[in-house]
Design a protein around this nucleic acid. Structure first.
Lengths: 201, 201
DNA sequence: AGTCAACTCCGAGTACGGTCAGTTTTTTCT
DNA sequence: AGAAAAAACTGACCGTACTCGGAGTTGACT
């Protein structure tokens, strides 16, 4: 009387469980205390696994942060992508994609900035890093899609502009000069730059 | 019977000497082996000072890299700034500022990328970090100056565009996807983006 | 059931960036 | 010159991210 198809052996199930426990533990501790105030040992303890085991699931502490934050980022992107469709103005539409991402990133400033740091300077061969880059690519695609509504001719130009917007967002959120700024101030800063970038209509 | 104008006491002279030795040692070791392969201990040994002393002159290893690289960056900027004046076309003029900086940054890819990382994520209160930010500001000013030749009206817009170019340069040089690219490829990548950004003439 | 190879897990150990209490050197004051 | 204060120097020490050799599990095969 088995519940039909259960292709996963005990080994696979255990691995999945452990990964879940690790993700949950890291997420809670990072959110509560900030990534710099949490040791990998604490995460291992909370996930109830050995020190070495932790690094079988995420090769570095940075990967661990990517693992945790990717989920939030992806969700923010999805929300923005949906909102953008309803905005007639190009700049507004772009900002509807941008804003949720910035808000998500600034929930905890240190974690957000460290996340960006890992994204740009981490090892792209690592799986969670690759996932992060994929979300960035999706973000740029979404923005390029909005830009293309206006000028469907220059598709490659839209992609280039989207890439630039990506860079603007990155530095707006990451720069240490902006660390103390409110989320709203950063959104405005980004908006100003994008408005200069967009072709004048 | 003092030797007249010697405003520097022995203490100050010693400090200067030590800083020089540290700078020289760090520069050589970083250039030869790459920042990640060099320990602070090696630098202290080569500079012939104690472990703790090193950190009186640069609070972190990152500051040490900033100290060393700032000099090279400043020089590259100066060269570019002079070259730019002779270029009639705006895009060309901007690229004459950009290119030497990229070339300087890519002399040793890892060091260049780490330098940028420290610039954005390091502690802006530290002196060498502040110096780095100052050079970035000068770079943006130089670029804004070039842009303002074309459209002297929108000064603030020129500054904003210069800031965006700064962001484009940063990510072009820092992104891990670009780590394997040749200097020339990166310059081209940056050029393409800037050409989209500049107001069509 | 028993055997064994492959996979997974573990925590003592390592390396390194950075700190700090104690010492030495320099300057100042009398 | 000598004493006292100030500044600079030092290396033993610490915390932490990450490694590695060996122990423990799992599942395929007979």
């Amino acid at each position: 009387m088995s519940v039909a198809p259960q292709p996963l052996g005990r080994r696979e199930r255990n691995k999945q469980q452990k990964l879940d426990r690790i993700t949950a533990a890291a997420d809670e501790l990072f959110t509560e205390h900030g990534v710099d105030e949490v040791t990998t040992q604490q995460i291992a303890d909370k996930a109830d696994i050995g020190t070495g085991t932790l690094f079988l699931y995420a090769r570095t502490k940075g990967e661990l942060l990517l693992l945790v934050q990717n989920a939030h980022y992806a969700e923010a992107l999805e929300r923005g992508r949906a909102d953008a469709e309803a905005a007639p103005e190009t700049l507004d539409a772009v900002m509807r994609i941008v804003r949720p991402i910035v808000e998500c990133n600034r929930v905890q400033v240190d974690n957000g900035r460290t996340y960006l740091r890992e994204m740009v300077f981490g090892d792209p061969a690592e799986p969670h890093h690759a996932a992060a880059l994929s979300i960035v690519a999706q973000t740029e695609e979404a923005i390029a899609g909005v830009l293309a509504r206006e000028e469907p001719a220059g598709l490659s130009e839209a992609a280039t502009r989207a890439h630039i917007i990506s860079a603007i967002m990155f530095l707006g959120m990451a720069a240490s000069e902006n660390a103390a700024l409110s989320t709203e101030a950063i959104v405005q800063d980004i908006r100003t730059q994008i408005s200069v970038l967009l072709p004048t209509t």
